[in-house]
Amino acid sequence: MGSPSRFADILLVEDNPGDVRLTEEMLAEGDFDPTVHVVTDGPEALEFLERRGEFTDSPRPDLILLDLHLSRMDGEEVLAEMGGELQEVPVVAISGSQEGAALKLDDLHTEVDACLEKPIRPEDFDRIARSL
């Protein structure tokens, strides 16, 4: 299918176990062989990214797959809290609908590198990952 991805570490921020499983399966089907780190809510995502708490040894991800609809702190709030060098990490917003993701992000004037609609298909991720 082409050359392997440059994404060695992907942070998946997703609170639905079924979507986590499907995303991991999708990544396994493609040319990508990343290490997928999973967190289930916004505060946990920020701890991972800032290497706090149980995540002091976490790698800096090469890509963040961020569900916009999370408990405790949604994806938009996570994006707003990401600062400094974390803003350089590519972020792909994941939403139940492409239109919903674009509208929410437009409302906040927040930039992400791409949006994907659930369920994520290998060919869609492959296209976006190669463009990033």
Score class of each variant (00 low, 15 high):
85 E>S: 14
61 P>A: 00
45 A>G: 08
63 L>R: 00
121 R>D: 02
19 D>E: 03
76 E>Y: 14
118 K>P: 10
105 L>T: 03
32 F>M: 13
38 V>L: 04
19 D>F: 00
66 L>T: 01
66 L>G: 00
67 D>V: 00
58 S>P: 12
115 C>Q: 08
77 E>M: 10
111 E>Y: 07
96 G>A: 15
107 D>T: 13
72 R>C: 13
25 E>A: 12
45 A>S: 09
33 D>C: 06
85 E>G: 09
38 V>Y: 06
111 E>D: 08
31 D>Y: 01
43 P>L: 11
67 D>L: 02
24 E>I: 05
81 E>Y: 09
117 E>V: 01
64 I>D: 07
90 P>C: 09
75 G>A: 04
79 L>A: 12
31 D>K: 05
32 F>V: 02
99 E>T: 12
112 V>T: 04
21 R>E: 15
47 E>I: 10
77 E>G: 05
19 D>T: 00
71 S>G: 15
110 T>Q: 14
107 D>A: 15
64 I>H: 08
25 E>P: 00
85 E>N: 12
22 L>Y: 01
38 V>A: 04
60 R>L: 11
117 E>C: 08
91 V>E: 00
93 A>W: 10
130 R>V: 08
44 E>M: 09
49 L>T: 09
50 E>W: 06
111 E>S: 10
23 T>Y: 06
66 L>S: 01
123 E>K: 05
57 D>A: 06
131 S>Q: 11
89 V>H: 07
